[in-house]
Simulated scan of single mutants.
Amino acid sequence: MFGAPPTIQATTIAILPERFHVAGRVSGRYESRPFYIEGPSLSRDGTLYFTDIPGGRIFSLAPGGDVELFIEYDGEPNGTKIHRDGRIFVADNKRGIVAIDPETKQIETIVDRVANERLRGPNDLTFALNGDIYFTDQGNSDILRSHGRVIRVTSEGETAILLENIPSPNGLVLSPDEKFLYVAVTRTNAIWKSPLTVPPGLIPTVPVGTTGTFIQMSGGTGPDGMAVDQDGNIVIAHTGLGCAWLFSPIGEPLLRINTSAGLSVSNVVYGGPENRTLFITESSTGAIMTAEMPVPGHLLFSHTA
Rank of each mutant, 00 (worst) to 15 (best):
D52F: 03
D52K: 03
I53L: 11
P54I: 05
P54C: 05
P54N: 03
G55I: 01
G56W: 02
G56A: 05
G56P: 02
R57C: 05
R57T: 08
R57I: 02
I58L: 08
I58R: 07
F59R: 02
F59T: 02
A62H: 12
A62Q: 14
G64C: 15
G64M: 15
G65H: 09
V67T: 03
V67S: 00
E68A: 09
E68W: 01
L69S: 00
L69N: 00
F70S: 01
I71G: 01
E72I: 00
Y73I: 00
D74W: 00
D74N: 02
D74Y: 00
D74I: 00
G75K: 02
G75W: 04
E76N: 07
P77C: 03
P77I: 02
P77M: 02
P77A: 05
G79H: 08
T80S: 10
T80D: 08
K81V: 14
K81G: 12
I82D: 01
I82M: 13
I82E: 04
H83T: 11
H83L: 13
H83A: 15
H83K: 14
R84W: 11
D85M: 06
G86F: 10
G86E: 09
R87E: 06
I88T: 07
I88F: 12
D92S: 11
D92K: 11
D92Q: 12
D92A: 12
D92E: 12
N93Q: 07
K94T: 04
K94Q: 07
R95I: 04
G96K: 05
G96T: 09
I97P: 03
I97D: 06
V98T: 09
V98H: 01
V98N: 01
A99Q: 14
A99G: 15
I100K: 06
I100M: 06
D101I: 12
D101L: 11
P102R: 07
P102N: 05
P102K: 05
E103W: 10
E103R: 14
Q106N: 13
Q106T: 13
I107V: 14
E108N: 13
T109K: 11
T109F: 09
T109V: 14
I110S: 13
I110A: 13
D112G: 12
D112W: 06
R113P: 09
R113H: 15
R113V: 14
